[in-house]
Design a protein around this nucleic acid. Structure first.
Lengths: 343, 343
DNA sequence: CTGAAAGCGCTTACAG
DNA sequence: CTGAAAGCGCTTACAG
């Protein structure tokens, strides 16, 4: 029995199937008007049933992988790079194209949220991953209305629209960091945090508070200093803490950048880390590994975050409804050289 | 006189122009091997001159906003991120889409250069910026045959094919760094370089040698250590230099990463920088600013490099012929805290 | 409206 | 290695 050659479906094949000529199918596909309604319907039916694709489309489909736009506010932040790297790893595995969009660079965009969303649609993106808080709720809604799946990674504030957000277990991470210091024997532990009103910072702070409480260490208000996620907040924070009557013996910083600011300032003052001062960061970016002394830090699972973000976009594309609007992935403490028992 | 209908350039047209048959042109474009070198060269010349585009490419160019693929080997390197940032800045201004491709992440690609190039064409890229040496000459040639402009940024080795490359004035930068140390009064200056066979490293080394010569400082062979562009080369290099009978009082490192390795090792050994040892880096990435002490470094003009790369791609798309196969943009020395007069 | 015929641009198979 | 010839898949021009 001769095996029917499994050749690709051609326009001629569609024509045969529909009982018309090839030129007629060509006209239908190209939207010519010189085709009777009846013939057109017959051809359209076959086209739909067989899923015919033009050679151009075939090459596109083979070639054109789904394209996801990743929006970051800058490439300067080690956190953003780590997340981007996680996304790229998953993108390679899933055969997804990644378009990069850096918002911090552009001049104030003249586009309103809707125009912006429309642009994304026109350019054929099939999903977005947002690693910035540059988008408020309004633009996120605009994307949603156009059926473009959007996933937000660790937004400073949780999106109120029905958008999936992915983050880390900040509370547990804050608790782990603080517990580590407590178990080393520290009792005077400061929290040099990020912005007060930012969700992930609040969670880290409350993890810190929970750890203190469970070790019966009273909270000391002047050990808690909110600020920004920048190095100079770490430097100034250390300065402020050293002026206290009883300075802390350990500092838990709201992120690695703050912690490195503490390290730099400590060095300037000839304070030995970890002998005289223990420091723990948060994020576990490459900066933590590379610093001297290497920074003990709560590592975020960047690879998993990237993977989860991309997977969620692809699942939504397939029409699946996400299990949850919010996914938190487990952090883990990486102990390096910047922490030790107090003197 | 009837105006010759300005019909699009076809493969047959290219064949006529080159004095060969259409199948031969087809073979050249598709990278078949059954074409003589002479014939191939003739056809390639015509392809380049006329800027022939396949029907698929033509449709793409009309339809989409230009999309440029940026190929990096990893996102870990501060150098790569700085270049990428420069490219993004220019991309925003020029309204160009940027697709990110990270080669270090993918498993060994099963695609040969030609298939890979074909994929890029099929996916409708109109140009490529390559910030890696993952592509040898062969794939670059494959892109060129298909009329896709490729610009290589600071390749470890200059591409021999007719591809534009963009870099920095490494020789002048190396000379500036060394002159800075000489003018501070140093005479015992080491060069802790990158790989021996890498073009930019050779240029930096020769800049170092030129500066020494013009200050009548004899070159000391054991002060010159080649290695890799990695931090541990800096650490081990410092170790080796300290074992010399007369250790150097200053080190010029082949890049910032090596320099930071020196700094870290110095710190471990309680060697004060810059009091006991001056260190100069190369690249001027954010790492140089953030280290303690902040690193004196030869800054590369990342923004200009990105801009030049993208502009060159866009110009080639418009059919302009680049002024030069090689563009070098000026570096400048940024003096920070890691250099001082010797004791 | 319809489709046989001619045409287009590229690729493949193969004789020399 | 080269290219005439055949082929492929689609589109166009046009007779009916």
């Amino acid at each position: 029995m001769a095996l029917e050659r499994q050749s690709r479906l051609t326009l001629a094949g569609v024509a045969r199937e529909a009982g018309v000529s090839a030129p007629t199918v060509s006209k239908v596909i190209n939207g010519r008007h010189d085709v009777s309604g009846e013939t057109r319907a017959k051809v359209l039916a076959v086209l739909a049933r067989t899923g015919y694709k033009s050679p151009l489309q075939q090459r596109r489909t083979l070639a054109d992988k789904p394209a996801v736009e990743v929006v970051l506010d800058s490439l300067i932040s080690a956190y953003n790079i780590a997340v981007l790297n996680g996304i790229m790893e998953c993108a390679v595995e899933s055969g997804v194209e990644v378009l990069l969009h850096v918002t911090g660079i552009e001049a104030a965009s003249p586009l309103n949220p809707d125009q912006r969303a429309q642009r994304i649609v026109d350019e054929g993106r099939c999903g977005m991953i947002v690693v910035t808080s540059a988008f408020g709720d309004a633009p996120l809604g605009a994307f949603r209305r156009r059926g473009i799946p959007v996933v937000v990674i660790d937004p400073l504030n949780p999106p109120s629209e029905d958008v999936v957000s992915i983050g880390s277990t900040d509370w547990a991470g804050g608790k782990d960091a603080t517990t580590h210091l407590l178990e080393l024997g520290h009792r005077r532990i400061a929290y040099l945090g990020g912005p007060d009103n930012v969700e992930c910072n609040q969670a880290r702070l409350h993890g810190y508070l929970a750890a203190l409480r469970s070790h019966d260490v009273p909270v000391q208000d002047d050990y808690i200093i909110a600020g920004t996620f920048a190095a100079d907040h770490g430097a100034r924070g250390l300065d402020a803490l050293l002026r206290l009557e009883r300075p802390p013996t350990a500092i838990f910083a709201g992120n690695d950048t703050i912690a490195l600011g503490v390290l730099a300032e400590a060095r300037r003052r000839n304070i030995q880390v970890p002998e005289q001062l223990s420091v723990v960061g948060f994020d576990g970016t490459s900066k933590a590994e590379e610093s001297v002394p290497a920074l003990t830090s709560v590592a975020q699972p960047f690879q998993e975050i990237g993977r989860a973000a991309l997977r969620t976009v692809l699942r939504q594309l397939r029409g699946e409804v996400p299990d949850s609007r919010r996914v938190e992935l487990a952090t883990h403490l990486v102990v390096r050289e910047s922490t030790a028992a107090p003197r």
